[in-house]
């Protein structure tokens, strides 16, 4: 889908590539087919998973137009623009902003807590892949089907996905998981001074990261401080 992602028209070729089989079927005559391809060379961008919804909708609209319905090419363009943008924003905050960090955190916490006692820690990445792709493939498959069936009314699909609640609750559970892991780590058989260092460092990174200091810089800061510290103490 995003193989020919470019700064000029972003996902236009990926989208056209997905739509091409539909266009080939709808327009057997070469001249009309070329025209339809040309129309879809225009700018297009959305969230890659939700692109399927748009493919569904556009396939339906193209079909209606080919059969002599009242749909105009400009309408298809407008639908692509407006819904692409809206789904793009929702997809970014749902998948990149909430669901992926959350499922990844679940896997990380499993590894951190169980690595020493439990032989099955290697299952954690598989759990991550399964959890994440459950919602991912659900969105893709449902998206293309519902998009074709319901056209622009597909927005209702989002209501059914409860996407705001998903974002909100994965953030909340994520926070709880982080705190739980910290508590579990602090109750390990460390020396008191180690616990203190751990907690102090955790809190200072939380604060520093708030001031937009990137994780890479914080890593170098940690290395610098501990090297200097090693010479002083």
């Amino acid at each position: 889908m995003q193989a020919v992602w470019n700064f000029e028209r972003m996902q236009n070729l990926g989208f056209l590539y997905m739509l091409a089989p539909v266009l080939n079927k709808l327009y057997p005559e070469k001249e009309k087919r070329i025209q339809s391809y040309k129309r879809h060379l225009e700018f297009f961008n959305t969230h890659p998973y939700f692109a399927n919804v748009l493919v569904g909708i556009v396939a339906r609209l193209e079909e209606e137009m080919a059969k002599g319905g009242e749909v105009k090419p400009e309408e298809i363009s407008a639908v692509k623009m407006s819904m692409g943008g809206a789904f793009g924003g929702i997809g970014d905050s749902l998948f990149w902003g909430a669901w992926r960090p959350f499922t990844a955190l679940v896997a990380c916490v499993l590894v951190i807590i169980y690595l020493k006692k439990w032989e099955g820690a290697w299952l954690a990445p598989l759990i991550f892949l399964f959890l994440y792709n459950f919602l991912h493939f659900h969105t893709r498959i449902k998206g293309v089907l519902e998009g074709y069936e319901k056209k622009t009314k597909v927005v209702r699909l989002l209501e059914k996905m409860h996407y705001l609640r998903t974002i909100w609750s994965s953030h909340l559970i994520g926070l709880a998981l982080v705190l739980l892991t910290i508590v579990v780590l602090l109750f390990r058989d460390w020396r008191a001074i180690e616990r203190l260092y751990f907690l102090a460092f955790f809190l200072s990174v939380v604060l520093l990261n708030r001031w937009r200091i990137s994780s890479a810089k914080l890593l170098y800061l940690l290395i610098g401080i501990s090297c200097v510290g090693a010479y002083i103490f």
Binding site: P101, F102, L105, C108, I112, W168, S170, H171, L172, G174, L175, V178, L179, T181, I182, L185, E194, Y197, F198, L199, F201, F202, L203, V205, V206, N209, R210, S215, L218, L219, L222, I223, I225, S226, C227, V228, G229, A230, Y231
Partner: peptide, 24 residues
């Protein structure tokens, strides 16, 4: 010193995860 830093790495990661989920 580096060995000490390595043992603190999980705290760095968890703190960044904490901030990620705090940005509602």
């Amino acid at each position: 010193g580096l060995n000490f830093a390595y043992r603190l790495l999980p705290a760095l990661g968890l703190a960044i995860a904490f901030n990620t989920f705090r940005d509602l």
